[in-house]
Structure formats: structure tokens, C-alpha cells
Design a binder for these strands. Structure first.
Lengths: 249, 249
DNA sequence: GACATGAGAATGTCAGGACATTTGGTTGAC
DNA sequence: GTCAACCAAATGTCCTGACATTCTCATGTC
């Protein structure tokens, strides 16, 4: 039976890349769907043909398709084939405001940059909605207040901020530096938790006895939806707390 | 290297069943984890050994494991193995109660009232904008989720709520009880922190090793500005984190 | 024209195999 | 006691192969 031929999508597979083959394929197919090059209901190229065209095995192609199904982008049925899924409506979550954690303190904050380099980090890239192979500017800073170590802060930013210097980052806060370049994060997703510090954190924060750290992970985006930064901060719990005001009037 | 042997779970595979083998396996493993026969952190039998024991191929076992990872029940790391995931409660820093949040996520909350009495407490009174000599209703509760201790919660309320009973407080969450009497907190000031647990908290929360608690203090007021409650909660940090969304557009 | 049947197309399931990478414990050297 | 190197254990990735099941269309018969 001559089914309607699935649409062929331009795909580049790089076997020298450290990114798994299935992941490269999944991302490019997802990009094509998300960009609107395929519309809901469009038939997809079948898994065998796509595999032959790209020189990939069927399980590898199936693994990529599976990821797209999990993201809600594709629908697959045995005997019928693969089609582009209908777009779902996403509801915005209700919001609260968060006090800026350090600007109210009045203490004399200082920053020491422990590390500043370009890296690849899949987890950070995912938190910024960027491809796993994306290069990111990774900065690790030690923040002190009144000469007392308070926090170790790790941040990852897109390499559009690759020209940030140690001097800038030590002279003022990261967000102040970003504001000076016209970048204003307006949306952030934060998760607050607690754990015991690692050996390195104990050293930097001068923690001697048994004392936890308060952690906060944050993904921040600007008004246009561009990734600004992903941060993973840990604070000496004895010296730090986070204040949240809730107003549901 | 002799790793700790993964726990063996009783599994019945029926090859005459129309249910796919991977699905039969996934369901029985999930049931064992959900039923508590395996605890967070427990090592799982590795995929090769499990396959050999059940006469299943490695891809079939991996497919079952993959489903459990997707459900948040297992954690897998290359070179290390498969372990039962920690149960994490992710909570939005909105004006909701833990009971409401756990009920919504299907985590079967229960409450045990440890103490219910009228007291004077200067600190709590101050947090409620009340005179230091004001009498307050003081309640201490142990909250469990899925039979696992999660939080010790201390609350102080004005004595207008003095007729609250143990039964009411054990049957549903504090805020549900308040709503039933037409009381609705709309403004709250919350402080999130971390510390090491007290001996009593260790006992109630069944904390054995070195593990911190995540703390949240909250003063809540109704629309007219009347004090509703002051709460001081501590949560097992390995099982709890707080989610905050920020939108400043 | 309606209905049954068969076949082709495509996905679903399962198996076996191999190599790469990560992790953490052990061992030996200093 | 510390540190580096090595190795075993375990998962991650990718491949080839085969059979089962579902779906739809074409064809033949009445």
C-alpha cells in the first residue's frame, strides 16, 4: 500500500560529536516541529526509511522518536505510522515575588571569583533550554559579607556573555553586571533546599562543625524568553535565610 | 570491586500474557518501590543480573528500568548502579498548606498531633503583631507522607481558635480547618532556612545519619490584617524542597 | 455496490552482541 | 596519611536480526 510519504527533514548527524546519535536526531526533529516546518497531522518519515537515509540503526531512530513522543511532539501508532502531534496549550503558573536576597542586607559584600571558564554541562544547558552540547560560561564565586564567607555560587550563562571579566564579577553582583548591558531577567524558576556541604564548600565557607548549607537552584530568562543564567548557590545556613512575602489579596 | 548487592525483588514473568514483558517487569518493580518494600537509597539489582535471573534480555530489563526512572522511582548512574530514588516533595512558596500540597500530589498525608495547649510565647506573639502577654493556642504536629515522616510543624494561633480539636487537626490540614470557619489567610511573611535537627526532631523524623532540616517560619494574616497563625516548620531536607517562581514583567 | 480476504506498510516487542564511559574501591608508592 | 594508578562493576550507546501485531488499501467475489 502506498501510504502518503512522510515528510523528509534535513538532519545532520555528526559521529565525531560526544552527543549521542539518538540525541542529535531527536533535537533536530524537535526543532523542525517546534519551528513549524511540520504542522500537526503531517505524516513523519517512517523509522526504517529515516534510519537508512541517515545511516542509523532502527533502535537508535526509535529512541529519538520516543523522546519526541515523550515531549508531546509526535504521535505513533502501530501499522499507521508517525505524525506530528496537535499543539498543547500551556497554562502559566501563578506567581509570587521574591525579595532580592542580598541587596537588603546592608553588610559589605565582596566577591572572589574562584573559576571562570567556558564549559559544556548538559544539566546546566537543559536548565536554560539550550542544547546539551552548547558551550556555556561557567563562573564560580565566593561571596563574603563583612569579611565572613557566606556563599559559594556557581552560575552558567550563554556564551553571549563570554566577555565577562573577573574584574567585573568581583566588583559588583552578577545581575548588576547584566543590567549594565541591558539584560534584565524577569522570569525565574527557583528550587530551595538543604544538604550537607561538600569538602570544598566546607573549606571555602570555613565550616568546621556539623552544619548544613541552604541551596537554591535558579533558571532565569529575560522578557523575550532568552536564557540569562542558570545558578546553583549554596549558603552557609547559619548565616543565611531566604525571605518570601506572599500576597494573595 | 565488590559493590553492595542489589536487593532482589520477587518478580513473576508470564510469557503467555499479552502484556509486554518489559511492562510486567516495570509494574512489579514499581509496586515494590511504592509499597515501601524498598526504601530510598536502597541499591537495586543490576540490569544484567536481573535479566539473567528472570530469563529476560538486557534491553527488555533496561526498558522496564527506564519507565521507573521516568516515574521518578529510580535513579541510575553509569558505573555506579541503580538505586531507589529519594521521595522529594516539591512545594511552591505560595500560601498553601503542606496538607493541601501532599493531597494534591497523591502522597497520602497523615497528621499526628504531638501537643495542643494554650501558652504564652513572646516570640510567637511578636510574629503575630500581638502583645507579648497574649495567650496563644500552640499545636505541634508530625506530618507524614506515604507513611514516611516528613515534617514537624509548630503553630501558634490566637485563642479565638482555642476550640480547635485534636480530631480536626488530625483529620485534615490546618488551613482546611480554618477555611471551614471562613478564615482565609491572604498575606504571609516567610523565612526559609536550614539547620541541623534537634534530638526530638531526629526522633520524630527518623533521621539517623548527619542530615539537615529545611526550615520555614511563617506569619500569616487575613484580608483585614488580623493574625491567623505563626508557624515554625522543619522538613527532612532529603525529602523536601521549596519551589519559587518569579515573574517581574 | 457491498463485503471478505489478503497483502503491504509500519510500529511494537524481544533477543544477542560489542564497545565506551563513568564510578568508586583497592593497592602500592612516597 | 596522602595521592595516583589501576581495575572491576555497572550503565550508556549503538548495532544487527527476527517475529508479532495493527492498520489500511487493493482485489476478487457475489
Amino acid at each position: 500500500m502506498a501510504r502518503q510519504l512522510g515528510v523528509q527533514i534535513e538532519v545532520q548527524i555528526d559521529r565525531t560529536s560526544p552527543v549521542p546519535l539518538y540525541h542529535q536526531l531527536a533535537q533536530q526533529l524537535a526543532a523542525a516541529v517546534t519551528a513549524g516546518r511540520l504542522q500537526p497531522g503531517d505524516p513523519f518519515e517512517n523509522e526504517v526509511a529515516l534510519g537508512e537515509r541517515l545511516g542509523l540503526s532502527r533502535p537508535t531512530v526509535r529512541r529519538a522518536f520516543q523522546d519526541l513522543v515523550a515531549q508531546g511532539l509526535l504521535v505513533r501508532r502501530r501499522g499507521l505510522g508517525t505524525t506530528v502531534a496537535n499543539r498543547k496549550v500551556h497554562r502559566r503558573a501563578e506567581l509570587t515575588s521574591l525579595w532580592d536576597d542580598l541587596t537588603r542586607s546592608g553588610d559589605a559584600p565582596t566577591t572572589r571569583v574562584l573559576s571562570l571558564e567556558v564549559v559544556r554541562d548538559e544539566h546546566a544547558a537543559a536548565a536554560l533550554d539550550l542544547p546539551p552540547e552548547a558551550e556555556l560560561l561557567h563562573v564560580v564565586r565566593l561571596r563574603t559579607a563583612d569579611a565572613t564567607p557566606l556563599a559559594v555560587m556557581r552560575n552558567w550563562l550563554p556564551t553571549t556573555f563570554g566577555d565577562l571579566t573577573r574584574e567585573q564579577l568581583e566588583h559588583e553582583g552578577l545581575y548588576a553586571v547584566l543590567r549594565a548591558r541591558g539584560v534584565r531577567p524577569v522570569v525565574a524558576h527557583q528550587v530551595i533546599g538543604a544538604r550537607m556541604p561538600t569538602a570544598a564548600e566546607r573549606r571555602h565557607l570555613q565550616i568546621r562543625g556539623t552544619e548544613p548549607v541552604l541551596t537554591m537552584s535558579r533558571s532565569a530568562f529575560d522578557a523575550a524568553g532568552n536564557a540569562v543564567e542558570y545558578g546553583d548557590h549554596c549558603y552557609k545556613a547559619s548565616s543565611y535565610s531566604i525571605e518570601v512575602m506572599v500576597d494573595e489579596r
